[in-house]
Design a protein around this nucleic acid. Sequence first.
DNA 1: TTCAAATACCGGAAATTTCCGGGTATCCAA
DNA 2: TTGGATACCCGGAAATTTCCGGTATTTGAA
Lengths: 212, 212
Amino acid sequence: MDIRIGLADDQQLFLRSLSALISSFPGFSVSAEALNGEEMLLKLRDAEERPHIVLLDVSMPVMDGCMTAERIRISFPEVKTVALSMKQDDDSVLKMLRAGCCAYLLKDIDPHELKWALTQIYSSGYYNAGFIKVNLNRLLLHDQHKQPVITDREREFLKYASSDLTYKQIASKMFLSEKTVDGYREALFSKFNVKSRVGMVLEAVRRDLLRI
Amino acid sequence: MDIRIGLADDQQLFLRSLSALISSFPGFSVSAEALNGEEMLLKLRDAEERPHIVLLDVSMPVMDGCMTAERIRISFPEVKTVALSMKQDDDSVLKMLRAGCCAYLLKDIDPHELKWALTQIYSSGYYNAGFIKVNLNRLLLHDQHKQPVITDREREFLKYASSDLTYKQIASKMFLSEKTVDGYREALFSKFNVKSRVGMVLEAVRRDLLRI
DNA sequence: TTCAAATACCGGAAATTTCCGGGTATCCAA
DNA sequence: TTGGATACCCGGAAATTTCCGGTATTTGAA
């Protein structure tokens, strides 16, 4: 009996390619492909034979990897989820693990390691990539410290901040005083632990709060 | 006789996956894989049977797609190059086409279209994805206006600029005077047509000069 | 050899960003 | 009803960024 894998990634070529790769592993088959989280949930709902393991891209349109993992955990608890991402920033890793993923893999993983990871997850329920293992304790310790909550206004401000506009111009676009947007700036600096507007914008991009 | 394909992409999993996908196309085989441009050139040099077509990721470390395409065109003119990218901004497209690529494909292309494109390129020497066709005339008209050349020092400065460092700190890291880095800043502002450091960094990211 | 481009440097001033302190009003949940 | 989070506002000063004007040396290609 094959280990059935589900794949969700918004990049079509990567999705189909990875599917071809995994199908070529003996003992594995791909039973569901989706271009976003919502599509994956639909396929799981309608599937006769659900995948044992679903690989989820972290950043997808319509429904991102985190929310999808959460929904899968609730609706199909027998299906194991694995995060697949290009980034390995602490926040993403934590968010996915907290959403119930039993592994966090990087997209530049070696195919052999991927196969090994999937085998491990199928049999023992989890797999820790080397880089994760090292940090896991530190991450879980500082857990509640991190994950600062970004308000809607701050998010809106971030959009304007990632441009050539001065704060004065941003204030007028948001119909606020300069001092108020200065407040948002200050709040985000401390939440992101940065010291400049450039750092703030880059951190926002890294946290997927901004698309560029 | 199979159509031989070469692949260069820094993302290991994508590289191997795409290789699996293309190998599964009847009449195709993958005869060279590389994680960057330099590696690909070495493989081409040593290969007994060179690929007919090489797919190049636009943004790679060590040697990017553009330079690789150029070098392939010079050293192995019989090998056709194809750009493979996530982005479709005018500059990237132009740069790759000018470097001698006979097609510019997006990474979320449908596998069937990829196969069709490769077939076309093999037999007729070129393939235009829909989106390119529309813009090609406009692009070629405005050609020389665009494409500001970024020097190595400017590129290095950009790396430092995409951080919390002040220009003073950047200057000391680069062993230059503050005024000199101010010169780089000024040059890049005008090349990118922006008015602030944030704009500069974001534009650099858009042009694949910086990774985030 | 001559010219352009890249590199390196300088001063001064205006604009913007950053940091510090303070404050009020509302709303919601404990 | 008290506390906490959010949204909003203010002044002042220091640091940084931006813009303007220059000059000199090196280097490689025409």
